[in-house]
Design a protein around this nucleic acid. Sequence first.
DNA 1: AAAAAAG
Length: 707
Amino acid sequence: MLGASRRCLASFTRKFSTSIPATRTSHPSPALERTRLITNRNAGFTLSSRKLHNGSRSWQNAAVEAEYRDEVNAQRPPSDQSINEANSGGPITRFDELSSRRLVHDNVVRTVTEEMGLKTMTDVQSLTIEEALKGTDIIAQAKTGTGKTLGFLLPILQNIIKVDPELAQRSRYNRSTAADIRAVVISPTRELAEQIAAEARRLTRNTSVIVQAAVGGTQKSQGLRTMQMQGCHLLVGTPGRLNDIFSDRYAGVEAPKLSALVLDEADRLLDAGFWPEINNFQRLLPDPSEQPRQTMMFSATVPREVVDLVQGTLKPGFKYVKTVSEDDVPTVERVVQHSVAARGFENLLPTLLELAERETKTRNETGERPFKAIVYFGSTAEVDLASSILYELGDGRQHPLAPAKFFSIHAKKTQPQRTAAADQFRATRSAILFSSDVTARGMDFPDVTHVIQVGLPRDRDTYIHRIGRTGRAGKEGEGWLIISDIEAGEVRNKLRGLPIRPNDTLETASIDMTRNAKVTPSVGRILSLIGQSAQRVDRGTKSKAYMAMLGNYQWFPKKQHLIDAMNQWTKFGWGWETPPAMSPNLVNRLGLSRIDGINVGHEDRQSSFRSGSGRGGFGSFDAPSPRGGPRSGGGGYGGSYDRASGPRPGPFERRSRGGYDGGFDGGYNRNSGRGFGRDDNGDGYGGGSGRRFGQDNNQDFGRGPFN
DNA sequence: AAAAAAG
C-alpha cells in the first residue's frame, strides 16, 4: 500500500515538478500512471500552507505535499488513503457495456451509440461514469475536450431514471413541473451552460427527462414560464440566475427530490468571485441529510482553495477521479505552441495580421482545414479595439483575411450578441473569433485550428484553458502567444514548464516603428493596413483599451517602463499626440502619480499632459514632420473621412446576421458617407504618426521622437 | 482601470 502510494507520488512529482524534493522522483509504471482513483475515507488530509512558486497550485501539488508531510510526521496510517487501479475490476471502456452490464437503460445507451455515434469511452468517461453510477460524490480532474460533460450527464440521467423508470421512455404525457428538479449543473459562463444543456437535450432525446437552462442575460419571466409549462428534471445554469429563480418565492422552482449537483469548472466556481453565490445556492437546496444527493465537481486544475472547500461540499468518502497522461495530450502535446515577442504594443496587431494572413494562405494552398482561430485578449476593451481595427481592414475592398468571417464575444456585450457570436463561430468553417476569457473554458467550437493569445494571460490556468479550445476531438491545432517585449521575461515565470517555443518567423514583430527604417514591401503593407485601419476606429474605443491595459498590467513592476511602452503604442500605433487622459483619482489608484508621461485630466475636456522631461522617455509628443504622408487638415490618411462626431456603432453591431453579410466584398467603403466617427485627435492628422507604408518598394517609415 | 456572474 505504501509502495503504491509512493509510486503514485512519484508520478505526481514527475509530472508536476514543483517544490517536491527531487530525491522522491522515480519512474512509475505506465499502467499506474494511466488512471487512478483515490478514495478519501476520512474526507481528509489537511494541507500545509507552504506556498508553491507563483501561487499556482494544483491539487496534485497539494495532495503530494500533504502526503509527503504525513509520511514525514507519520500522523496518518497508510490505510487511510487507498489507491485502486481503475482496471482492477475490469473497467468499462465501451458505451454498449453499460447496456450489457445493465448499468444504464438501453434506451439511453442507444442514443449515445447510435445517435451520438459514440462507441469507446474516453478516460474521464470510463472512470466517472462507472463511479458516479454508484452515487458516490466525486471530484474529477480532467482536461476539457475529453468528453467530461457526457461523463456526468450520463450517470445523472441514469440515476434519475432509476428513481422514476417511466422517464426512460418518451411519453405523450408530461407530468413534470418546475418543482420537479432532480439534478442541477452549475457552470461559470452562460455559453457553457447553454452548451451543456444542448448536450443534455441530445442525450435525453428519447426519454421523458426535461432539460432546462437558466442563465443571466435572458428574460427571467420567459424562462420561468417555459419551466412552469414544460417542467424540469435537469437544470443547467449560471450561479446568479440559479440563485435568482430558486429564491423567488413566486417562481415555483423547487427541487425537493434533488439527487445530483454538478459543479463544472469547479476551480472557477469555487474561487473568490463565485464562492459566495455557490454557497448561497447550496443553502437554497434541500438539506442533504433529508434529501440525499450526489455532488460532483469537475475541474482541469484543482487549486488549494478548492481542496479546502471540497471538504464542506462533498460527503466524506468522496472519490478523487483523476486521469493523467492521456488527457494531458490534447493541450500539452497535441497542440504545438509558439511564442512571439513583439517589439512594442504597437507591433501586436500587425504581427497578428501577418500570422493570420500567412496561415490562411498556406492552408488554402495545402488544402488543410481552413483557418479558424480564436484570438484572446486580456480585457473586453482590447477585444473591442482589436476586432474593430481588424474588421476595418476591409475598407470597401476585399478583406486581406477573406473568406474568414469575423466575430467577437465578451461579457460586456448583450446576451443576444454573445449567443449569436458563439453560434455563428461554431457553425462557420473559416472564421476569427475575438474573445475575452468568456470562451476560455469548456467551450466546444469545432475545428478551431489556432488559438492566438495576444498579451500575457492573467495566469497559467487561463493559458492552458484557452489552448484547450483547439486540438479537440483528435484534431490538430496550434497555439500562438503574441506578447510585447516588456512582458517577455514573465513568460518564464507564469508559463514555466509549458512546451512553448519562441518563434521568429513573423517579420512584423521586430520592426522598430519609432525609427526610420527600411521595411520589406510585405511588412510595409501590413503596417500600412493596420495603421490606416486604426485611424478609422473611434477615439473612445482606444482610450478604453488603454485604461483596461493599465488595469491589467498592475502586476508589472516597472511602472515608468510600462507607461513609456504604452505611450509609444498610442503614438505609433494610433498616431496620438498625447495618450488618453486619466482622472487624478485613477492615476493615484494605479500607483502612477510619480510616473512621467501620464495625461492627467478628462478625455472630453482640456487635459494637461505631463511631458516627462528629463527622463529620456517621451520627451515630447510634437507632431511629426509631414515627410511620410499626406497631412491635409481635413483629410488625414489619403482619404476624406466623414468626420461626423459621436460614436458610431461598432463594426460588429451593424451587421444584422453575423459574419460579414455583405461586409468585405462590398459595403464599407470609407468614402461612402457611412460615417467613421471623428478623427482621433480632431487634429486632422491621420495615418499613424504621419508615416506611410508603401506597397511598391522599400520605403522609409516611421519617425522616432528622438530624431 | 483589470474574466466572470443577477437586475
